[in-house]
Design a binder for these strands. Structure first.
Length: 102
DNA sequence: GTCGTGATTGTTAAG
DNA sequence: CTTAACAATCACGAC
């Protein structure tokens, strides 16, 4: 039983990020973000005249429609982006430490 | 040592 | 300007 969704995250009141950290080390992007970056053109292209409602949905369906290999490059990017985040959080934790030191 | 949480990321499109 | 489905994430903190 893979704990599925945990935390009622049904797209309720999130967005606009609430700064709870001094430098807010935002995390890395997600594979979907990279995949969407490429598919958005392709999907919107195959579905000319459709709004995000359709695009966004079909987008997600196709996202999983890909095989592990196809998601590979996207996940790889996500992993790389995460590294980027590691840097921010590193700076953040260093800055926080410095601040604390002060 | 393990576990869950929250925060975040980006797309499109529109009122 | 913001929200909304769509999906992943995963580092952090807490006990």
């Amino acid at each position: 039983m893979p704990k599925e969704k945990t935390t009622k995250r049904a797209t309720k009141g999130r967005t606009e990020k609430k700064k709870k950290d001094p430098n807010a080390p935002k995390r890395g992007l997600s594979a979907y973000m990279f995949f969407a970056n490429e598919q958005r053109e392709n999907v919107h292209k195959e579905n000319p005249g459709i709004s995000f409602g359709q695009v966004g949905k079909v987008l997600g369906e196709r996202w999983k429609a890909l095989n592990e290999k196809q998601r590979g490059p996207y996940e790889a990017k996500a992993a790389q982006d995460k590294k980027r985040y590691e840097d921010e959080k590193a700076s953040y934790n260093a800055a926080a430490e410095d601040e604390e030191s002060s």
